[in-house]
Write a protein that binds this DNA or RNA. Structure first.
Length: 341
DNA sequence: CGCCTTTGACCGGCGC
DNA sequence: GCGCCGGTCAAAGGCG
């Protein structure tokens, strides 16, 4: 269970425009099935997309006011504002960005650490990583906006009802939402990992609260919630049915606390600021891809933000040992921690 | 005993 | 209005 070799692959980058609720089994599957080997960006049709601005890192985007639209913009995806978009398919307008950022690296990693309440399976085989970001507006665009309207109406109704009959709900799962407490969706971020286990160790403690069969897939989708009080981060884990070796993890929300693993280790690692969506910290992965991104297509600007990516990249392994690997430790903390001398 | 997973039921949104 | 579907709840049971 420990000291397994892990491989991080690297290949192309993909961007998906999503129309559904992270329909990984539709889009991702095609995505996976046509993984290119080149260093260019592709949309689902295989068209090349422009590389993102070299001036910003993914984290920059992600940190930046949580405006995931920026990310899309950076990838020249003409991220539309909800206002500009008519209802698509009569419903919500969503945008999905999937970045396939495979990295090749060999790591000797012993798993185990990571919090996981002891029951979380280790991650014997992590690797491929890909990330996907759902614009913050995601469900906001269509559905969410609608919802917002409804909320008020319903709140009013609720108030009236409560006044009338004390609001006796005998249904089982009928938890009346409090005023204003309505189904809100935090920004989501998904990435793919080649792994034998579904639930990847990421340094946080998760409680599984549901599992559903996934349409068109033999593999179920599991729902996890961060066990830390007041932390409402959730994550969904499912396996690609096209490539069962790939696990698709979707994080939703931001941790309001430090990673238990980080605390426990209490190394010199700087705990990331809570404002930073820890799930998004894949800088190193992203950094990795960047040079390739630009290779042969877009020229690196000489004065590019050093925060972005390095002109001369160390080996993947070296990179993963970056001093600031704390950025990555939420994603692959066990890699890192165990690699520490 | 505390924490976790499992699992069937339920809710709410959406398309037809 | 109805059915489908994704997401969530919560009781029950397992495990260390």
């Amino acid at each position: 269970m420990s000291g397994e070799n892990r491989e991080l692959y690297h290949h192309g980058h993909h961007f998906l425009r999503d129309r559904g609720d992270l329909p990984f089994h539709d889009d991702l599957s095609s995505f996976l099935s046509q993984r290119p080997s080149g260093a260019t960006l592709h949309d689902l049709q295989g068209h090349d997309l422009q590389a993102p601005s070299p001036y910003m890192s993914f984290t920059d985007y992600l940190h930046g006011s949580s405006d995931y639209g920026l990310l899309a913009k950076a990838f020249d995806m003409s991220y539309p504002s909800p206002e500009l978009l008519g209802p698509r398919d009569g419903g919500a307008v969503k945008q999905e960005l999937v970045v396939d950022t495979n990295i090749t690296a060999n790591l000797n990693v012993s798993t185990g650490g990571g919090g996981g309440g002891g029951t979380t399976p280790a991650t014997p085989n992590s690797s491929v990583s890909s990330s996907s970001t759902e614009a913050q507006g995601e469900e906001d665009s269509g559905r969410w906006k609608k919802d917002q309207q409804k909320v008020q109406e319903e709140e009013e109704k609720q108030q009236i009802k409560e006044g009338e009959d004390g609001g006796d709900k005998t249904k089982k799962v009928n938890k009346p939402r409090k005023r204003g407490e309505k189904r809100q969706r935090a920004p989501r971020f998904a990435f793919m990992t080649r792994s034998e286990v579904d639930h990847l160790e990421d340094g946080y403690r998760w409680r599984k609260y549901g599992q559903k069969a996934v349409k068109n897939s033999p593999y179920p989708r599991s729902y996890y919630r961060c066990t830390t009080q007041k932390c409402s981060v959730k994550k969904r884990v499912e396996r690609s049915y096209q490539d069962p070796t790939i696990v698709i993890t979707t994080y939703e929300g931001q941790h309001t606390h430090q990673s238990p693993a980080t605390i426990r280790g209490s190394t010199h690692i700087l705990a990331p600021p809570p404002t930073v969506p820890t799930s998004f910290r894949q800088d190193l992965l992203i950094h990795h891809q960047m040079p390739q991104l630009n290779a042969g297509s877009q020229q690196m600007q000489g004065d590019a933000n050093p925060n972005v990516y390095l002109p001369t990249l160390p080996t993947p392994l070296q990179q993963l040992q970056f001093p600031d690997y704390g950025l990555l430790q939420d994603i692959v903390p066990s890699f890192i921690h165990n690699k520490q001398p």
